[in-house]
Design a protein around this nucleic acid. Structure first.
Ligand SMILES: [Zn+2]
Ligand SMILES: [Zn+2]
Ligand SMILES: [Zn+2]
Ligand SMILES: [Zn+2]
Lengths: 152, 152
DNA sequence: CTATCCATTGAGATTGAGTCTCAATATATT
DNA sequence: AATATATTGAGACTCAATCTCAATGGATAG
């Protein structure tokens, strides 16, 4: 179970899996997909769970450290995380119009990056690839209004 | 020249290339490589140039809009921009230890992304690929100190 | 059980990037 | 000159994220 992994990780550091940390872990894993700390915190609060904003941030940090959670990207509205345990690595397409996030994975693409790293004598540990553009639905709407896709 | 492009872009929008905008454009292009607004502003101020923080941000926005400058990524210390005119698109490797940024470009990688977009019926407009890890110099130092499970 | 140690918590203060407001100013048009 | 519109900058404001620190609580030693 996830909390077992977290617990072991914490104990190795001489730290404890407290009630607060458990709750935050559970909530983070409850949202299948992407989440941000502020929303997570607000949701927890609304549902009457007790955990401070500080603890949310602190715990997410720990969860990242032990690999159960990962920072996906930073936006103007804060950092986006996602649950990582048992999920395959993937990259993202983000629709500039509706905000939809499409996940994808390409073995080929990953291999290619490894090759490039080798070439540059760089030891890659992680990466983020974000492709911005328009999803199928929005692309059709967007066609008509000409080039310069930087509005709204 | 760059300011000609900017001027034309502005005029098309019924706006003017003012003295402030000129200075900011010049300064942004002066730093070969990456820069962030706060540093740019501080440097300009230190060197006695007159342009407010607000103008720096506003102008960078405009420069992005017309493609002369591009947002490279968001870090915990703010947004990183780079000058784009006359420079080929490229992606980045960032050393987690010394902060060095290595630029690279791979035709193959770009083509592959196009293919993936097609496959997902997504109209890609731009992308950012950031590979985090350790550069040659730091990798050797880092070997010995184990831990830090910042896996992928 | 009591004393001590140390991790943890949470309320609120603080930081810092980025945006917004608005009165003053500059430029263009008539 | 008068009017209209674009621009600027000081500073207020927003908001994510971090920091501070007194209070709490679990673990362990005596
Ligand atoms: Zn990937
Ligand atoms: Zn994802
Ligand atoms: Zn690329
Ligand atoms: Zn670059």
């Amino acid at each position: 179970m996830d909390s077992e992994i977290f617990k072991r990780f914490l104990e190795e550091k001489g730290q404890r899996l407290t009630k607060e940390r458990s709750v935050i872990l559970r909530e983070a894993f409850a949202c299948e997909g992407h989440f941000d700390p502020e929303t997570l915190y607000a949701d927890m609060k609304r549902r009457g769970m007790k955990a401070s904003r500080a603890s949310v941030y602190r715990t997410l940090s720990l969860l990242c450290e032990c690999g159960l959670v990962e920072k996906v990207s930073k936006t103007e509205h804060g950092t986006i995380y996602e649950q990582r345990h048992g999920r395959q690595h993937h990259d993202h397409m983000v629709c500039l119009s509706c905000g939809k996030v499409i996940e994808f994975y390409s073995e080929h693409l990953e291999k290619l990056q490894d090759a490039i790293c080798r070439e540059k004598n760089f030891t890659g540990k992680s990466h983020t690839l974000e492709i911005r553009g328009y999803c199928g639905v929005c692309a059709s709407h967007h066609d008509s209004e000409g080039e310069n896709a930087n509005d709204r």
